[in-house]
Design a protein around this nucleic acid. Structure first.
Lengths: 270, 270
DNA sequence: ATAATAGTGTCTATCAGACATTATCTG
DNA sequence: CAGATAATGTCTGATAGACACTATTAT
């Protein structure tokens, strides 16, 4: 069944003569919130890139880059992440697309935001290059986003206040970040972190997401700490174990605990 | 503090000479799943547009259009929805951004998908125009998407099968649509419907989303039916009322029930 | 044995699910 | 009052939260 359009063209003929025309097209980038645990699981780290050019020159920004012509946004995010950290096959999920016309002062740039969770925070390009990358300590609480790196003496703080708004008949309570430090994140990248963390915490309820920050084989004390870091509050050990019990299987092996006396058992995700 | 870049330019100077360059930029559209209730609340309706040109000529598609240079995607979606239906101030939420390079045979087109919920399904442009719009009966079950309009004799069916996949360490079960009817939806619009419905049902758990399909003042039997339509399963009356009790307030008025005897009371969202 | 962490047992308040009953309206 | 729908009452099993206890290891 070969339909012709009002010009008498078949689909093949139409596509052959098609011209995308002069619609104003935006640039599209991907930007990523990349989280990894500290080595001793005492906190979370977030990966940032120091901007070497205008705008937001010398500001720290989320890693990201332009989406190439022959790749999807997911592929672009995976490629950028790999270029920056060498990481592959980590959890990577689309969060939200940011599209306010003035979000980039250069030209119209939309950003498709992703979040990535890694079991490790591998070394990245040092602080001397034009495009330096570094892992920052990351704290996210009900009323605060704190990002700091004591080695290079950078501290970035945003206070979170609750704001109510309406969408149709539905009422929401949303968090709004307010800069509280001298240093700031580039562009609207705080918003990306905010949206990502909200989505992340919600998805922990019904997915195996925290497992993506654990090693292939993990101890339950470690897994619990990861849950606690991501959720932002502590859990009862017994309840936690019941909660994850049907998703894990014992390996039979034991891990030497770092400081404790009794050795904990190793598990893997079913 | 006025930083200069490696060319010795201030930010102002840099922006004045900035040239977006020859990065390949995609076209960006918004596409919407617009749902409204049937007048008697016996089911859901979905708004579709008949395509008048290639590609997918004569196929039915989700309403949408190009994002203009001076508007956000949210604004573009609101504008398109208003142009198509006259609706304003309805629930409208971003769902997902679809970006596979070959999803549109013409050229690179990314689509930022939205979902909209309306308390009514207002009349739309009839079936004679080049770009006809129509409301279709919409059924979404665990293993089926059925979209049909008996007036114009169109039936579109997709079977849903479960497929497992992995993201980092996290395992997911996802639904994959398979066309089962002669007619089909244009582009990847089934995927948009699928993602939207999954997100919608999830968000019902922790938002007031179904209220956006009810009128300003509503009866609890009606609100319960809306919940049941969106969730796809029936609820116990007593339990439902307990669940919504702290989010509603009585107006003091009563509504004449359509077929019943006892009049039900009118409520509004707190 | 002691100290420190790993792992298990169990009580309780809450709540979703299920079903039963009472209330109100029309003819 | 009969029939139909609106609204409320109440039982039960599952479960999240909380706390207490036992087990295993190194020194």
């Amino acid at each position: 069944m070969e339909y012709k359009d009002q010009d008498g063209l078949t689909e093949k003929e139409f596509l052959a003569q098609y011209n995308p025309g002069d619609y104003a097209r935006p640039s599209v980038t991907v930007d990523m919130m990349v989280l990894g645990p500290k080595k001793d699981y005492s906190g979370l780290k977030i990966l940032l890139i120091k901007r070497g050019g205008h705008p937001f020159i010398n500001c720290w920004a989320l890693p990201g880059g332009f989406v190439h012509e022959d790749e999807s946004c997911y592929q672009a995010a995976g490629r950028e992440l790999n270029e920056e950290t060498g990481l592959k096959n980590v959890f990577l999920e689309q969060v939200y697309t940011f599209s306010k016309p003035d979000r980039d002062p250069r030209t119209r740039v939309m950003s498709v935001a992703y979040m990535a969770l890694s079991p490790v925070a591998p070394p990245v390009r040092g602080g001397d290059d034009a495009v330096a990358a570094a892992w920052f300590d990351f704290e996210f609480s009900e009323n605060m986003i704190r990002i700091h790196n004591d080695d290079i003496g950078v501290e970035i703080n945003y206070q979170l206040s609750t704001k109510r708004f309406k969408n149709g008949n539905v009422k929401y309570a949303n968090l709004v970040p307010v800069l509280k430090s001298k240093a700031q994140l580039a562009f609207d990248h705080v918003e990306i972190i905010l949206e990502s963390m909200i989505k992340l915490r919600r998805e922990i309820e019904y997915t195996d997401l925290p497992f993506s920050m654990a090693n292939e084989e993990f101890t339950l004390p470690d897994l619990q700490v990861i849950y606690e870091l991501l959720l932002g509050h502590s859990l009862y050990k017994a309840n936690f174990r019941i909660m994850v019990s049907d998703r894990i299987e014992a390996t039979g092996k034991k891990a030497k605990s770092v400081v404790g006396r009794r050795m904990s058992e190793l598990y893997r995700l079913k």
